[in-house]
């Protein structure tokens, strides 16, 4: 029987390109690559239900592989829709999103948390490839220039986000602050529990009255 779905040439080509980019990036952080090597032998399955695409990540000492097919055992399986994975990618606290979000987690979660930690701590040394191409002096100066640019950009972006956040929550009162929302949801949850208890108490009382009349 023929297997249906997206032409494997497309998915395989995309994964090959992604794998190449990933390994090139990892080669710029030897410490990160060594840490990934500790997860050699693990297979992480990322199963996207819509669109239906499966990706298997196998960290290795020399090279991390991305596969579209995998027949062997899977260490950790994460399953969900593309939107759920996008939410995870954009989350400020990925671990909390992974646990509390709509993604289904199967298998051993410890290696996955370790993988997430290693990826989060990656510190890519962009200077090395620049020095290889431009030479020691020009490469270092260009890297310094880029670092200063990134640093200024990052500081400006953080400041803008903070001010925007303050304006939306405190000045314009367009949406309530995060703590207020969390407090509201907590009250709501407690109210819901009290209502449910009251409802079951009423049910019990009704049943008792019916039994007495009978």
């Amino acid at each position: 029987m023929a297997a249906a779905g997206i032409d494997p040439t497309l998915t395989t080509a995309a994964l090959a390109a992604l794998e190449e980019a990933l390994n090139r990036a990892l080669s710029l952080d030897t410490a990160g690559q060594q840490q990934l090597g500790r997860l050699a032998g693990c297979t992480f399955a990322i199963e996207c239900t819509s669109p239906a695409i499966n990706v298997y990540l196998q960290p290795g000492v020399q090279r991390t592989r991305l596969l579209g097919f995998h027949d062997g055992p899977v260490t950790t399986r994460v399953r969900g829709a593309a939107a759920d994975f996008a939410e995870l990618a954009a989350a400020s606290d990925p671990a909390a999103t992974l646990i509390n979000g709509n993604l289904a987690l199967q298998g051993d979660s410890a290696p996955l948390i370790e993988l997430q930690g290693i990826i989060g701590r990656l510190d890519l040394d962009w200077e090395a490839p620049l020095v290889n191409v431009l030479g020691d002096v020009a490469g270092h100066q260009f890297a310094e220039f880029l670092r200063a640019g990134f640093s200024a950009g990052s500081a400006a972006s953080n400041s803008l986000l903070r001010q925007l956040d303050e304006f939306i929550h405190e000045e314009a009162r367009l949406t309530p602050p995060r703590l207020e929302v969390e407090d509201f949801y907590s009250d709501l949850q407690s109210l819901q529990q009290r209502v449910e208890r009251l409802q079951s108490r009423l049910e019990r009382l009704r049943k008792r009255m019916r039994d007495t009349h009978a």
């Binding site: 040439t9 395989t12 090959a16 579209g68 097919f69 062997g72």
Partner: peptide, 17 residues
């Protein structure tokens, strides 16, 4: 160059360990 993609897919389905 697509023959490399076809061969890569073959390797994936081989499930060799």
């Amino acid at each position: 160059g697509i023959h490399r993609i076809w061969k890569r897919f073959t390797i994936e389905l081989s499930a060799v360990r």
